[in-house]
Design a protein around this nucleic acid. Sequence first.
DNA 1: GTTCGATATGAGTGTTGTTCATGTAAACAA
DNA 2: TTGTTTACATGAACAACACTCATATCGAAC
Lengths: 311, 311
Amino acid sequence: MNNTHIELRHLRLLQAVAEAGGLTAAAERLHLTQSAVSHQLKALEDALGLPLVERAARPLGLTAAGRRLLALAHAALPQVDAALRDLAKLKDGDAGELRIAVECHTCYDWLMPAMDSYRDVWPGVELDLLGGFQADPVGLLLDGRADLVITSEAGSRAGVVHAPLFGFEMLALLPPGHPLAAKKWLAPADFADQTLITYPVPEDRLDLVRRVLAPAGIKPPRREAQLTVAILQLVASRRGLAALPAWAVAPYLERGYVVARSIGRHGLWAELYAAVRAADAARAFVADFIDTVRRDSFARLPGIRAAVTPP
Amino acid sequence: MNNTHIELRHLRLLQAVAEAGGLTAAAERLHLTQSAVSHQLKALEDALGLPLVERAARPLGLTAAGRRLLALAHAALPQVDAALRDLAKLKDGDAGELRIAVECHTCYDWLMPAMDSYRDVWPGVELDLLGGFQADPVGLLLDGRADLVITSEAGSRAGVVHAPLFGFEMLALLPPGHPLAAKKWLAPADFADQTLITYPVPEDRLDLVRRVLAPAGIKPPRREAQLTVAILQLVASRRGLAALPAWAVAPYLERGYVVARSIGRHGLWAELYAAVRAADAARAFVADFIDTVRRDSFARLPGIRAAVTPP
DNA sequence: GTTCGATATGAGTGTTGTTCATGTAAACAA
DNA sequence: TTGTTTACATGAACAACACTCATATCGAAC
């Protein structure tokens, strides 16, 4: 029957479920409750008269019907997005300038590919990347020296909008065979007698220090390194511990170069935001840059989750 | 912006508006009120921040944005339909038998192409066409000698479901230059002294006689012909008048072979139904045959409208 | 067994799509 | 011109539906 009342909402739902590997995780991405996802999926299955997901398996598997519908989602949703982009260009024009300042060192890992995707669909937008460490990157927006800032601070300043990108886990990195590797997760006290290897930034910019160690009154010695590989090399050679975003270390973990542990019972989670001037937030090429980063990151980065603050 | 809440419903709406050339006509096809279509279109335009249709022109024109979105509809909706068909096959299987009996002579005009489209997507279904005039075609369903009957009678019999296909206008055909051609439409009395040329069927099967002439107490002489071309030839050579469905005579009208006039102020409209056994109505390959006929007919036949009885 | 993480379910609520009843505007006829 | 017809717009009332909240159920790990 073709009169089945199917909507793009259903396709987005199925895609999210398949990608997230579970209803709860899908709900988070869609900024819905788990209940809504469960209800909606059931309603869809009832309407079609076919089960779409294997409820037993974890990660959740799709049935043959589910896979067919997912194939439709993969075919149709990008077409829809492309059309909406074209409409946005018709409305706002398709040219502009986007000078991007980046606060976090490891962000280049995902920012570069995202910029490449973006360039494909907005060839008329001039992309610039501002280098060097900035004391007050959001200030650059108001100075007019940058148009978009990637930051981990949600702090809202007048005239600036912070759009949440995604949440990620900071993992503690240990050399293989380190005594602490026996634990499932590390408590603040575990860092007491360890050297901390970090990027060369002030202490209050390090989530591990500001949110975990400082509150616990622990102040381990620090050693700084400029590059991610250098930090990993120091950890691997047992000069100390480090804390880096999960996505940045995934390739090294696979090779067994270092091992990772969560920080605290539920892990140390941080968020990234794209800050733009309020006046620019509604401009199509700006809004779509943020969308592109979100989509691209979810497709590419392991161990990230939707931002808690809805976009 | 991509977070715009667009749904397949919107695409179907825009497609219907574009094809029907107006909101009112689109509403009829979608089995909605004109108000609903107007509201929904306005909501969509507001959400996108762009006008989609040129309200002034008649038939309604699309803006550049409307055309872009229509292109999306043309790309995406067939994919959706194909996916739903595949799901139906997964559910019910993809094979079956469909013996079709046809009551109306001119129906072969659209039935053949529709059957061709259908065969493409349901290669496993055995299609058969039952020939010859049937006194009680719906009876064949209950006898088990046919599986689907094309009929113009809505009359519901136990165990048989009548699915409306579309409404069409019966046009009165006159030779060019006939005195009655001066009128915009013909009244019952106009037929009083004219010979009526018809297919060889009982009088009570002729809509013109049963619904117009008989109630007015008019009983013109009849002359019968087997073939549509024969009827048209007799009309053109001034042997009498005929009444045929608009779609069946469109090509002859274009060539000026005959001229057509409405019967009555608002025209004489009839409907066609597909009758199937109630037990078969839910089977995917049966339901989709009916859908295919509807879609195909609307795409191909001029001067038809949605059935008044909602499907 | 208990606990934890994940999905299901029922009731209540807010949103939104639809209809109904008009209003308005343009085209056409008298 | 006025009346008539046809098509689209609009506001209020209603109905349907999607979502949330709270809670139940299920399964796996300990």
